[in-house]
Amino acid sequence: MAETHEEVVKVWIAPGCIVCDACETDCPDVFEVQEETCIIRPDAHSEDFTKPLTPSIKVAAEGCPVDVIKFETVQVDGPEPWAGQEEEAATTAGAGLTAGPAVTIPQGPPDPKWASLLTAAQISHRGRSDLPAERTATVPVEAVAEALPLNAPPDASAAAMVGSGYVRPGTSVAERIRVQGEGVTRREVSVLGGVSVVVLAAWGALGGVFATCLGALQSFMVPKVTKEPPSIFRAGRVTDYPEVGVYMQYKGSQGVWLARLAEGKLVAISTTCTHLGCIPNWLPGDQKFKCPCHGSGFDAKGMNFEGPAPRPLERHKIYFSGEFVVVDKSKKYRQELGQWSSPESFIEV
């Protein structure tokens, strides 16, 4: 008797995989564990690829805890080419031979049981014109799935269905899976490329809008208006204020009265009423500032002596710069805080 041995020509995974990594550990060339399932690598759909890997495929099928790894073998003449190379694996594979499933590929006309089942089942054809029009389901799809010989290789089931009119003959399942796998990749790449261009453009546009808004905000922060006049101004010479009295020449432009007081001081009085911020008028006949809004009255020194004003008028910093009198409006001196005695708040004249 001539020596023969088995070689795996086809391997597939029946439903029920628990994604346990065992097969990939045993035979990483054929099996690839993915996130939710385990697949046969596209290369392993060819007979030439699986034949040399027969021992490790058998080990993997043995090691599968849920026994979903199925394979098909042919008898080949001659000794095992891998004998001696992987003795241990061969021994194990030999022990599992009897358990190896042997399914005959249905040839010729379709199995009538299948054909009737599939005719009765409602199958979604998703608008494909080459499939029969809608039909009434008398048997649920699940019944068909149950009736399928799970142990049969995918292309065997497909072959069974070819004659029923639901599956177009042609490409083998293995081929289809391979093409599909590559197609998915290609589609993913192209979709990713298209989507990423659109997304990038959208984010770019949004960024542009934000950048424009920020720019506009910037011009809010730095408004293009005339700045306030500087708070320091030169108020002429002391000789401009020869007599005791209130001088009005800087009231309109600077909001300051220069007042020469009887006690020998020249002071700069703010024109803002301390009640509600109106601008009082100097009444020379009464020798007082009188506010037109609520009738507050201040004497020539700025003391509030009538009406509702709660505080005396404020004074500004005043000093000599050479022979010129300079007023600094950024500094204020309040009588009620005892600041009028500060030497910066007046000039001795």
Partner: peptide
């Protein structure tokens, strides 16, 4: 003209009770 407010400076008529209280 902030340097020369009207004399007298009056609020809208319906606020003049308030302005009178401010006195």
């Amino acid at each position: 003209n902030p340097a020369g407010p009207p004399n007298p400076s009056k609020a809208p008529w319906y606020f003049l009770g308030l302005q009178e209280m401010l006195v």
